[in-house]
Computed example of a mutant assay.
Amino acid sequence: MALSRRTYLALVGGTAAVAGCSTGSAQAPSYDAPSVAVPEAVSSHLSDASNFDGTALDLTGRDEVEVAVGAEGNAGYNAYSPVAIQITPGTTVVWEWIRGNHNVIDTDGAFQSNLGTDLTFEHTFEEPGTYTYYCSPHENYGMKGAVVVESE
């Protein structure tokens, strides 16, 4: 049986949407933590990120912190969540892909993940400082994040 052009495009288009950017059921992590002010470098870097409220979550004193990759924001599922965090030296940040084809690239080259889906990437922050990062395919949408490592 031959398919009409309209039926074919509807079938192929629906399949492509499912294969390309599934909405999945994974959720961004939720932390019961206070918000803290961020350095100007973080505010400047995240100025076009739709999920940035001008603060970072204070997650100091934890051994490991999770950041979702592909959270809702920036005109789709193009956000990191939480977008900005404050941690102490020795903390490992684990980026967990929950949706889409993304990566994590430090703006100064300190770390870089693969580009893909269903990935996990981690980096242990040993030195105090401000680390900003982005997703290369979605940076123009505002898919950016920041880690502030406070001095002990």
Rank of each mutant, 00 (worst) to 15 (best):
V69Q: 02
V69S: 04
V69L: 05
V69Y: 00
A71M: 12
A71P: 03
N74R: 03
N74C: 10
A75Q: 15
G76Q: 04
Y77T: 09
Y77P: 01
Y77D: 05
N78L: 10
Y80N: 07
S81M: 13
S81R: 02
P82I: 06
P82N: 03
V83T: 05
V83Q: 04
A84W: 05
A84D: 04
I85Q: 00
Q86D: 10
Q86I: 06
I87R: 01
T88I: 12
P89D: 12
G90C: 12
G90S: 13
G90A: 10
T92N: 06
T92P: 12
T92S: 13
V93N: 05
V93K: 01
V94M: 11
W95T: 01
E96Y: 12
W97S: 10
R99S: 15
R99I: 09
N101F: 09
N101Q: 14
H102A: 09
H102W: 10
V104E: 08
I105W: 01
D106C: 11
T107I: 10
T107Q: 14
D108W: 11
G109N: 07
F111H: 04
Q112A: 11
Q112K: 14
N114A: 14
L115C: 12
G116P: 12
T117H: 15
D118K: 10
L119V: 02
T120N: 14
E122Q: 09
E122I: 00
H123C: 09
F125H: 03
E126F: 10
E126L: 15
E127R: 14
E127P: 10
P128A: 07
P128Q: 13
T130A: 08
T130L: 06
T130H: 04
Y131L: 08
T132P: 02
T132M: 05
T132W: 02
T132E: 00
Y134P: 03
Y134D: 01
C135G: 13
P137F: 06
P137Y: 08
P137W: 08
P137H: 09
H138S: 14
H138M: 15
E139C: 06
N140K: 10
Y141T: 08
Y141E: 02
G145Y: 08
A146G: 12
A146S: 09
A146I: 03
V147W: 01
V147T: 05
V147K: 02
